[in-house]
C-alpha cells in the first residue's frame, strides 16, 4: 500500500506541474504567435519566454525523483 502512495505522490508531483506548465505555455504560445505576426524580430525572446515555465515541471520532476528514491 505504501508503494502505491509513493507512486501516486510522484505521479501527482510531475503530473500537476506538467499540466501547469502546459497551461502557462499555451498562454505564452498564443500571445507569442500574435506578437510574431506583427514583429518577427522578437522570435528569440518568445522562444526564451516559452522555456521559462518549464522550471515548474523540472521542479516537479526533481520532487518526483526525491519521492521515488526515498531521499
Amino acid at each position: 500500500m505504501e508503494k502505491v502512495f509513493i507512486a501516486l505522490s510522484a505521479a501527482l508531483a510531475i503530473g500537476v506541474t506538467a499540466a501547469a506548465t502546459a497551461w502557462v505555455q499555451s498562454r505564452i504560445g498564443a500571445a507569442g504567435a500574435g506578437a510574431l505576426a506583427e514583429k518577427p524580430e522578437v522570435r528569440g525572446a518568445i522562444i526564451v519566454m516559452l522555456a521559462i515555465p518549464e522550471t515548474l515541471v523540472i521542479l516537479g520532476f526533481v520532487v518526483a525523483v526525491l519521492i521515488l528514491t526515498g531521499k
Partner: peptide, 12 residues
C-alpha cells in the same frame, strides 16, 4: 534557490 534548482533541467 530557484535559480540553482533550475539547473536540474540539465539532469532531467
Amino acid at each position: 534557490l530557484g535559480n540553482v534548482l533550475s539547473y536540474s533541467r540539465l539532469m532531467a
